[in-house]
């Protein structure tokens, strides 16, 4: 992930008013995590699985502050239970930013399931998403995601793909 893309994610988060980021580190976004940790305006919480991260983000929402859950798209599978209960059960939104593993061009066999399962799971959770492939589209996509989720009170996602993570 290039520095411009890292900066664009952090800029988008700040434009959206995000103060807390929960993450489980992954390889495609690996440059993003230390940059978030180093940012004085963002409190980061490393979690043990993405479902736990979703729950923490839900709690941050209830406090009136804004949170993001950042992860590989495989983390969606680990967090389905939590996301379903929070979003579909109670209307507590979690905004997710995830790397697009398993897209066409994927060169790791173990990552193929991540691409195949991502969109059906997002659809099953009635969660709209935008797949972003250009760095100059990142910040607006993140802001749009927050605007939607804070009117729908439901989850939304930004998928970082293409040249952003390759």
């Amino acid at each position: 992930m290039k520095k411009e893309a890292v900066d664009a994610v952090i800029s988008g988060l700040k434009q959206a008013g995000v103060e807390v980021v929960c993450y489980l580190p992954d390889s495609l976004l690996k440059e993003l995590y230390p940059a978030l940790d180093a940012d004085p305006d963002i409190r980061t919480v490393q979690v043990t699985n993405e479902g736990e991260g979703a729950a923490i983000c839900g709690g941050v929402f209830l406090s009136g502050k804004r949170a993001a859950l950042i992860m590989e798209n495989s983390g969606l599978r680990a967090s389905v239970e939590h996301l379903a209960r929070l979003g579909l059960g109670a209307g507590i939104p979690v905004i997710m930013i995830m790397s697009h593993r398993g897209d066409l061009g994927e060169n790791n066999w173990w990552a193929i399931p991540h691409g195949i399962t991502m969109e059906p799971i997002l659809d099953a959770l009635r969660t709209p998403y935008r797949i972003v492939k250009q760095t100059d589209e990142i910040s607006q996509a993140i802001q749009d995601s927050y605007t939607w989720s804070y009117n729908a009170y439901h989850h939304s996602a930004v998928v970082l793909s293409g040249g952003i993570v390759r």
Partner: peptide, 14 residues
């Protein structure tokens, strides 16, 4: 919310 309770509480505490 099985498995969400203390996580949500931590988010609220933060």
């Amino acid at each position: 919310q099985l498995g969400c309770v203390t996580g949500e509480a931590l988010g609220l505490a933060i």
